[in-house]
């Protein structure tokens, strides 16, 4: 296994009302190729800041981020943009309401000059099929799509430029539970088929339990615990992790018992 993404001593400070606050504080971790690493935390944990630094939306205050063994520059080159893509939380705003689905997908193909021009329309159709939509959705406007369909389009867009690493920023938290299950399944299938690597940012631990290979828990900008999903859920080492797990609303007695068990360990 080789690390596709490596964060080394990464910090990020923001100036808020003239005062500097640390949103991310000396964080180091690696993401292996082909794995799904979940980044878990509550608001103010710094998880979104980390996503934005991986994507190059902002630079780091200190530390380095390396992709495929090569440090990423502050000003990303086209090939970096092509390799690292994003799926956002809100499918309502992530697609331009005034452009068709096809136009939104085509942008990625045009910017990165993927395939001959004449074949791009066909490629868009194939991408839509890959995410479970009919090719003729290309002509539709996002307003004519349901939340789940829009999220599928957003996923297709992230894959259009043949990305290797996808940052999933709460990709299903705005969706209804039935739709969420289908979109999560699609994400898992695509990962296996395309050999993708995911950085899955979420606050929802029950989703994490079922999709992530490893989990990194953040609290107030610090990485407090990282481990395999199995280990983290069966024997969390940090108090905060335990509290997070026990706060998850559950639907079965079996789960309630497990929560009880985890909180019981504390004593």
């Amino acid at each position: 296994m080789s690390a596709i993404l490596e964060l080394n001593g990464v910090s990020k400070e923001f100036a808020v009302n003239g005062r500097r606050t640390k949103a991310v504080d000396n964080v180091s971790f690696a993401v292996e190729k082909g794995e799904c690493l979940a980044i878990v935390g509550e608001s103010g944990s710094g998880k979104s800041t980390i996503a934005n630094m991986i994507l190059g939306i902002y630079g780091t205050t200190a530390g380095t981020i390396a992709f495929a063994g090569e440090p990423l520059p502050e000003r990303r080159e086209k090939r970096h943009r092509r390799a690292i893509q994003l799926v956002q939380q809100n499918p309502l705003s992530s697609l331009n309401p005034r452009r068709t689905v096809g136009a939104s997908l085509r942008l990625a193909l045009d910017v990165h000059e993927i395939g001959p021009k004449a074949e791009r329309a066909a490629r868009i159709g194939a991408l839509l099929q890959e995410v479970g939509l009919e090719p003729d959705y290309a002509r539709r406007s996002p307003a004519a799509l349901s939340g789940g369909q829009r999220q599928r389009v957003a996923i297709a867009r992230a894959l259009a430029c043949e990305s290797e690493l996808v940052v999933l920023d709460e990709p299903t938290s705005a969706l209804d539970v039935l739709v969420q299950a289908r979109v999560l399944r699609l994400l898992a299938e695509l990962k296996a088929k395309r050999g993708l690597t995911y950085v899955f940012i979420t606050h929802d631990l029950s989703v994490v339990r079922n999709i992530a290979d490893r989990v990194a828990v953040f609290e107030r900008g610090r990485l407090i615990e990282i481990g395999t999903t199995e280990a983290l859920f069966s024997s969390p080492t940090q108090d905060y992790t335990r509290r997070l797990i026990s706060a998850v609303p559950v639907v079965s007695d079996e789960e309630a018992a497990m929560r009880q068990h985890i909180m019981g360990d504390q004593a």
Binding site: Q180, S206, V250, E254, R259
Partner: peptide, 14 residues
Amino acid sequence: SAVPRITGGGIPDI
């Protein structure tokens, strides 16, 4: 059945 379980079991197939 669509709710992911914290005890695991994978993503439900709906």
